[in-house]
Amino acid sequence: MSAVRQSGTGVFSMNGREWSLLVACLLAVVIFSVASPHYANPGNAVTVLRNSVELLLIGLGMTLLLAMGGIDVSIGIVMGLAAIAIGRILGADGSPFVALVAGPLVGALLGCVTAAVVVLGRVPAIVGTLGLLGVYRTAVFALLGGQWLSGLPSSLTDLLATTVLGIPVPALVIALAYLIVWLALRRTPYGLHLLAIGNSEEKARLSGIPLIKVRFMTFVISGVLTGIAATFYVATYRNVEMSIGSTSALDAIAAVILGGTSILGGRCSLLGTVLGVLLLRILQNGLLLIGVPSLWQPVVTGVLIIGVLGFEAASNRLPLTRFQRARA
């Protein structure tokens, strides 16, 4: 029989793409270590991981969106708006616990707005979120009044820059978020429905899947994850600048695609996204340390996206291998 058992459906099982990404990460580290004397030290490793926190959270949501055949190019500015809400609360000497709730809450609300436009309004996701990007960007300008929120009190930072059982809080939150998203994707009807919609919306409809509910939920989940990202952003930097989140959507989409999630939907890899984020951040950090100006970072990201998609289009893969890799 031509039926072949799908490889790896466990939380940590890895497919070919994921192994290649891991090797690419290690290779990049080796090359940068040779190229720059400042590269290989524990402090820099912490910097790279620290820089990955927000993108990991946003990337998990973006993985779900792309797997569903959706996208959200406004996600960085959503993080910005959530960060402003958190900053305002902290700036008014509000409780850090209120600030902790504000991020996910604003994220969820903005996720509802996006879903209202894209899902209920039936505006294609790429166009709908591009429109929202314009609106939100102006909202950020208006809310900040042309100035940074800066010198925020350290109450939230004190709360989150701690460790539990020796593990930093951001790492714990990311691990928990990963586990929850993985379970939702691989162990609940929601995940099946999401992948079916990503494969073909019409077939999903004919199968009797609650399309609107699943798509709406996914935008809200992505919003919540982005709100949590905003919380870590404010806790770390204690300021909110005008350009906050301007490269997040590009970075997130690049990382997710690098990780093996299909831009056309129906196939995704959460582990791939994590490795994609790490590779992206390792490259950005390493290039900076060998003297490439940070202005060039989006160029690297853009070239990576085009490269991966071009490579996938060019390599004429057999359908079977495509579907074997669909689940890991």
Binding site: S2, A3, L320, F323
Partner: peptide, 13 residues
């Protein structure tokens, strides 16, 4: 004559 219910439908005839 299908032995494995775990196989992806994309791999079937």
């Amino acid at each position: 004559h299908i032995s494995d219910p775990e196989a992806p439908v994309g791999s079937l005839s």
